[in-house]
Simulated scan of single mutants.
Amino acid sequence: MEETSRDNHVADDPDRPQHDQIRRYSVPAGLNPEEKFEHWRSWYASAIDAPVRLEKTEKSVRSGFNPTALSLESPGFSLVDVTNEPASCYWNGDTNPSDWLVYFRTSCDKFSFSGRSEAVAPGTVRFFDLSLPGNFHAPAGLSAVRVHFDRGLLGLDGRSVKRLQGLADIRENPIMRGLILPALSGWQRSVIAQEMPRLQPVVRSMMTALVSSLLETTADPGDIRLARIAAIKKFVHRNFRNPALTVDEVVAYSFLSRRALYYLFEDEGLQVSGHIRALRTLEALELLAEATSWKRSLTDIAGASGFKSLQAMRRAVRELTGLSLGDAQQNPELLQTRAAELRKLTVL
């Protein structure tokens, strides 16, 4: 995805590698509706992986026409988030195989890929191969997120890709629903550019796990390791405020033994028990930092953070931050510094 003018570029650190950036496109201000459409048509044709042609759905362009796009590039995959105003799009197919996993945020009147034409409902998730011709007709506009991936990195041959394309909406697949959809829904976090060095292998691992599940084939455990870690961390993030969450609960969720779970997290900064404890400590620090924290008892804050007792919270705060609860309450700046350090350790 490329910027076509200075207006479309978000100022970034010039020393940061080019692939380590979120790029944004929006139609420049000061153009009339017809000029906006022509600008979008020109940009879209140059930015999307397969040569495409956009056409209006009506004779005239509506006055509020303002499509946008964001992209994140990395070796082996890219994320593109597009909001199309009313338009039809056509492409003849690309000579180089180009595979997409597309998550439709809104409905589309008609999508046609590989000779199959259908209406698409909001939330639908499908695989597509842009080496084949296709089109879409979106008279009400269209919002979608797509992952472009290198089939070679996932070990997919033409037959496997064809099987994936033949699958109907896959949003109900457990890996899709519990791991990949939440990632696609929240990928535009402000810190994502800083996470790029670790993002590519995680996305590859997620996609490998998804493809293995959909095709009912065995994947190399090493290939899906990061996807498993990401799924377990997400489970812990959802449940750490519940004092009943223990390593045993995570073992049951993951269908792994304690030993297997330990080895899975061997190279991570924290083991599962440490991750749970760090999240609870971070939550406690953030509650203590609130302007109204004086209205709550420390016992109440401990319970809200997932600790079984005030004493457990005291120990965790001291061991993970070096602060007593009194220090944390009396020195807001130091509290924020320690919270930031814990946040880095517990990032998804």
Rank of each mutant, 00 (worst) to 15 (best):
T346H: 04
P201M: 11
L270S: 14
Y262C: 13
V80P: 00
F265E: 12
Q21Y: 01
L31A: 03
E34Y: 06
Y44D: 13
A230Q: 05
L215S: 08
V120T: 06
L181Y: 02
S143L: 03
L298F: 08
R171A: 14
L342E: 01
G158H: 09
L345E: 12
K295L: 15
H39M: 07
D99Y: 11
D109M: 05
W294V: 14
S213C: 03
D13K: 02
G303C: 01
E341A: 08
V347N: 01
Q329K: 08
I229Y: 00
G303P: 00
D129F: 01
L54D: 10
F37P: 12
Q329T: 05
E85T: 02
D15N: 14
A50V: 15
R338I: 07
A69I: 08
A231H: 06
A87N: 14
A11C: 04
R259A: 15
P75R: 12
S78W: 08
R24C: 08
E286L: 09
I301V: 14
A230I: 01
T57C: 15
I276M: 05
G93W: 04
T299H: 06
R53T: 15
N92E: 15
E55F: 06
I170Y: 06
G186C: 09
E58K: 13
R225K: 14
Y90I: 10
W43A: 04
L261A: 07
T218I: 10
S26V: 05
R163G: 00
E195G: 02
A289R: 03
L261N: 14
R41A: 15
L270R: 13
S212W: 06
M207A: 13
M176F: 05
P17A: 11
I276W: 01
A328L: 10
P332R: 05
S98M: 10
T321M: 01
M313N: 01
I232C: 05
A219R: 10
F240K: 00
Q18Y: 03
A227L: 06
P14C: 11
P182E: 13
N331L: 12
R151F: 05
R151S: 09
A291L: 09
D81S: 15
L345V: 02
T346C: 09
A11I: 14
A219V: 07
A45N: 05
A227W: 04
D15F: 13
V145R: 06
G166K: 11
R126A: 09
V272Y: 04
Q188W: 03
R258T: 15
E118H: 02
E283D: 11
S107H: 10
A119W: 00
G152W: 00
S293D: 06
D220N: 15
A144P: 00
S185P: 02
S160M: 13
